[in-house]
Amino acid sequence: MFYISTLLQLLLSAAVASWSVSYYSRSICAFERSSVDFSCMFDCSDYHILKTKYWFKPEAHQKQDGSQVGISVYNSEAAKIHQLYKNRTAYANRDKNCSLQLHNVSKSDTGMYFFRFETYSSRGKYTGPGGINLRVAVLPFRVTVKTKKVNEHIHEGDSVTLTCSTENCTPTQEPFAWFKNQRLIPEATDSVLQITSVSHDDFGNYSCGLKNSSTTSADEILLDVRYSPKNVKIAILSSGNIQEGNSLTLICKSNANPAVTNYSWFMIKEANISYIGSDREFSIKSASQKDGGQYFCTAKNDMGSQNSTVTPLKVEVPSHRNFLLTATAVFLFLMAVLLMFVTVTEEIYENLRKSPESEENLTTYVTYVDLRLPSSTSDRPRCNSQDVIYSLLSYKD
């Protein structure tokens, strides 16, 4: 009889040694109000008849390794299911499949879960070791920024990691969505957004969420990238065309982080560069011709500086001034023509002379005059002969 009892114990020990429970996910992260699957398979000796199959969760004051049975999450004896989990579970109930589905997950469901089966034998009880750790993610999402630097500003060229997470854990089974200044970043679908070399274009407010959900982070986070002035240019404020006497203002504009702390203004005229101001705005109260030229400005912050492109500035003369200038030019031209005419007349009379062929003994005589005309600059045609002879008959006294 002793040998039979010993043999039975050995057989039972061998049978129990072959029992097993396999969990196919040791850790699960789920959102509140979602459903989770505890995937599980078990094996036990065919010599034992199963009495009870159930899932349990150790209470806070118990050991969390499964050695102490806690509250019943699911039980094949429905009356033993804890009130917190009634009507929230669905058991696979297929052969040796011990998978369990838990619905409407809440933060209080966080903890360890174990599967256990019992037979009608006093020693025929087995709990699958290890269990499944359930963590419940509590919304909203939040974005954290990490760099290799510690307590330093982010500069252009730095490597930056943005992580989308929730309290306790972050589910990764669904695609994520990233937003910059409330605009979707199509290529970003993971919970981590990596920027290997950040630039000034990456400056902005970032948020995240699930791609197939409208839920995003409650608060956007600013990616504060520091950079030297960019896109420096000059804007001209004037009521119209820049004319003499009008006022105008030149503004030096740029993108920079931190803000520009120093401005410089320069004027280029006849290949000379002159420093003319140190404010963001350069004003001219009454423009004149001497203000015409080429202008550029320099913007500077703690990160560096940049010059604007050269901007030409032309000061126009008002229309009534143009009329006066034209009238003056016409008057001066007419005066020049008149003076020329007087000068030519005098030259003609100076060329008058008597002919050497005249005879003094004639009662009447003929005086010959040789008239020589000076060279003309006129385009009018003239005769080939340069000398014209005029005769005058006169009587001697």
Rank of each mutant, 00 (worst) to 15 (best):
Y91H: 10
F38L: 14
L393R: 10
T119G: 08
A287T: 01
E347L: 10
Y85R: 02
G130I: 04
V330Q: 11
R135Q: 11
F117A: 00
P374R: 04
F117L: 06
N384S: 14
S376V: 09
L250F: 06
N246Y: 14
L193P: 00
L7V: 05
Y120C: 03
V16D: 00
L11A: 15
T110L: 06
S18T: 10
I81Y: 00
F42C: 03
E270P: 04
L339Y: 01
R183K: 15
H48V: 10
Y113E: 01
H320V: 07
D202A: 12
L184T: 15
V369K: 00
K314E: 15
N241A: 13
T363C: 02
I4P: 07
K290I: 15
R88P: 06
G293L: 05
A60M: 04
S122E: 13
R321H: 11
Q9W: 10
G292K: 00
S165W: 04
F323T: 15
E350H: 09
N87S: 15
Y126M: 13
F266H: 11
K354N: 09
A15I: 07
V366Y: 09
N87A: 11
I268E: 11
Y47D: 12
S286D: 11
P171A: 06
T172R: 09
K180N: 05
K211W: 10
E270T: 12
L339E: 03
S214K: 14
K80L: 13
Y126E: 03
L7M: 04
A60R: 05
R116I: 04
L338Q: 06
E357N: 08
Y227H: 09
N151W: 05
V388C: 05
N212W: 04
V16T: 02
W19I: 06
A90F: 11
D291S: 10
L338T: 13
K63I: 05
E220Q: 06
A327N: 03
Q101R: 15
E360G: 13
F266W: 13
E167H: 12
T161S: 11
Y47L: 15
D302E: 14
I276P: 01
Y47R: 15
V225D: 03
K149A: 12
S25E: 13
T161Y: 07
C297Q: 00
S121W: 10
F176V: 02
C297V: 08
I389F: 11
D291K: 02
E220M: 12
G128P: 02
C40K: 00
S283F: 03
S214V: 15
K51A: 03
A336F: 09
L184M: 12
L393V: 07
E167C: 07
V260K: 01
Q243N: 09
L334Y: 14
K53A: 08
